[in-house]
Write a protein that binds this DNA or RNA. Structure first.
Length: 492
RNA sequence: CGGGAUGUAGCGUAGCCCGGUUAUCGCGCCUGGUUUGGGACCAGGAGGUCGCAAGUUCGAAUCUUGCCAUCCCGACCA
């Protein structure tokens, strides 16, 4: 019992940290607010990245890479964007160290190596990218420009949490330029749909597509679209954003194009991103008190095979059988690991792979081979069944698909049960305290009211759902007229 | 950045109040052997700047001060 996990009921935050640390996804580092992503966690990110990258390319985007540093003068060009990020920027002011004359073996910043212009470590890359686009775009023939980059960014957060909020994180950021407003809006919505599809089909995590209120909008955007997910503790998590930037950045960086009539106009822009935060979302969406539960489509190991044997003779017999099975499973596209490490006994391995969230475990011993079966256990329900060795790969593929949809349905059931209507202030307050989750309520549409509600309850408007029904009502705080419900929640 | 808590081996801990030989125990690790259908057992062994730095003292894990880090709760945010 070396790796006990704190239960969700006892301490949800500790449960989350235990899963990350004991599941081997990440570790704390020597740098404040920054984490080390360990191989098992990084493998999940690679799976996410590969899938998203494919989806971006299928929608016509190309990858490029822009610098980590942004000269301060460029950073401040788009005023709202600069203001929004200013208080969380790391800034490079010097380019050299030297030995400390007063303290042997120590280094100090060389005061003579001060930069003429400070370099901002990118918290997001609009500035450096739009400054570059200026040189790439002259004519409508250069549009649309559809570029994505995979990168790290730095936001100096006061309080950090593994994967959910770290000072440095990995993400992708798409930055596109278009000839018309409609096309740019179309792109914004298209990428939101890509994110929603990814979240639901691959992460098995239901999301609500919506638009942010003005308070929650990305600094420098005209509209921020988002996907919002619900975690098991009833708090909402913004899982991805897609921004319609209008002509703000084109104007700030003077990016004009000539249309067919040779008329000059500013281009229309979008940007969109998801980050390693998705791993935090994935962890919280499905896992239980025994450890991680990973969706088969993103699990680094989909099937683990554990041999059970007495003596070398049986071990050899099992090895031979597993070699064949392993080949069949691999040929069927299944990521399979054979753990015949002799340091640990089967029971230990069972617990370990449950902790790591491996969707399917196959146990195979001499008596199984005698009757031409294996024991198959699924992580999500802990059910065990005997399965014939004949046609095993086919059945495992079916099982993996079953698990993928089962955990999606479970998460969706939970999410749907936690969207509740509130028609007055008292109900709203009571729901926040007792039930949590999303609360659908009328709001008068003003930033002041939203701010007030946030002050009083810590709940914010997560989004205005895209598929919202129009419905007359009264704002829960002010009683003013409202034409639709919006979703409130406490959020990460 | 405010409030609270914690810091002793890779992990979890005892000792601290009331200073005194070689810092306790469990897990893990190494060697050898026996084991293997839900977290194995026996024997031997390695592993420590007691978070860091000053101070008090003959003597500090223990007392004092400062600093640092982490966690939790706020404010801020993806």
């Amino acid at each position: 019992m070396s790796k006990e996990i704190t239960s969700r009921e006892e301490d949800y935050s500790q449960w989350y940290n235990d899963l990350i640390l004991k599941g081997g996804l990440a570790d704390y580092s020597a740098v404040r607010g920054c984490m080390v992503i360990k191989p098992y966690g990084y493998a999940i990110w690679e799976n996410m990245r590969d899938q998203l990258d494919k989806m971006f390319k299928d929608t016509g985007h190309e990858n490029a890479y822009f610098p980590l540093f942004v000269p301060k003068s460029l950073f401040e060009a788009e005023e709202k964007n600069a203001e929004g990020f200013a208080k969380e920027c790391a800034v490079v002011t010097h380019y050299r160290l030297k030995t400390d004359p007063d303290n042997k073996g120590k280094l100090i910043v060389d005061p003579e190596a001060k930069l003429d212009e400070e370099l901002v470590v990118r918290p997001t890359s609009e500035a450096i990218i739009w400054n570059t686009y200026k040189g790439w775009i002259q004519s409508y023939r250069d549009l649309p420009l559809l570029i994505n980059q995979w990168a790290n960014v730095v936001r100096w957060e006061m309080r950090t949490r593994l994967f959910l909020r770290t000072a440095e994180f990995l993400w992708q950021e798409g930055h596109t330029a278009h000839a018309t407003r409609d096309e740019a809006v179309g792109e914004t919505v298209q990428m939101l749909n890509v994110y929603a599809t990814f979240a639901e089909e691959f992460m098995a995590m239901p999301v609500i597509k919506g638009i942010k209120s003005a308070n929650e909008r990305f600094a420098g955007a005209e509209d921020t679209y988002c996907i919002e997910a619900l975690m098991q503790d009833g708090k909402a998590l913004q899982a991805g954003t897609s921004h319609f930037l209008g002509q703000n950045f084109a104007k700030a960086f003077d990016v004009k194009f000539a249309d067919k009539e040779n008329k000059l106009d500013y281009v229309w822009a979008t940007s969109w991103g998801v980050s390693t935060r998705l791993i935090g979302a994935l962890v919280m969406a499905h896992s239980d008190d025994q450890g991680l539960v990973l969706p088969p489509k993103l699990a680094p190991i989909q099937v683990v095979i554990v041999p059970i044997f007495k003596g070398a003779e049986q071990k050899n017999l099992i090895d031979d059988k597993v070699k064949v099975l392993q080949q069949q499973l691999k040929a069927a596209g299944i990521k399979v690991k054979y753990d015949d490490n002799d340091n640990n006994r089967p029971g230990w391995k069972f617990a370990e792979y449950e902790m790591k969230g491996v969707p399917v475990r196959i146990a195979i011993g001499a008596r199984d081979i005698a009757s031409n079966v294996v024991e198959v256990a699924r992580r999500d329900t802990k059910e065990k069944a005997s399965m014939s060795i004949d046609g095993l790969a086919e059945n495992i593929i079916k099982l993996l698909a079953d698990i993928q949809s089962a955990i999606y349905n479970k998460a969706k059931g939970f999410r749907d049960e936690h969207i509740t209507n509130a028609d007055n202030w008292d109900d709203f307050i009571q729901l926040l305290d007792t039930k949590t989750g999303f609360i659908a309520a009328h709001w008068d549409g003003t930033p002041e009211t939203e701010e007030k509600i946030k002050e009083l309850t810590k709940a914010t408007i997560r989004c205005i759902p895209l598929d919202n029904k129009m419905e007359d009502g009264k704002c829960i705080l002010t009683g003013n007229k409202s034409s639709q419900r919006v979703l409130f929640a406490r959020a990460y």
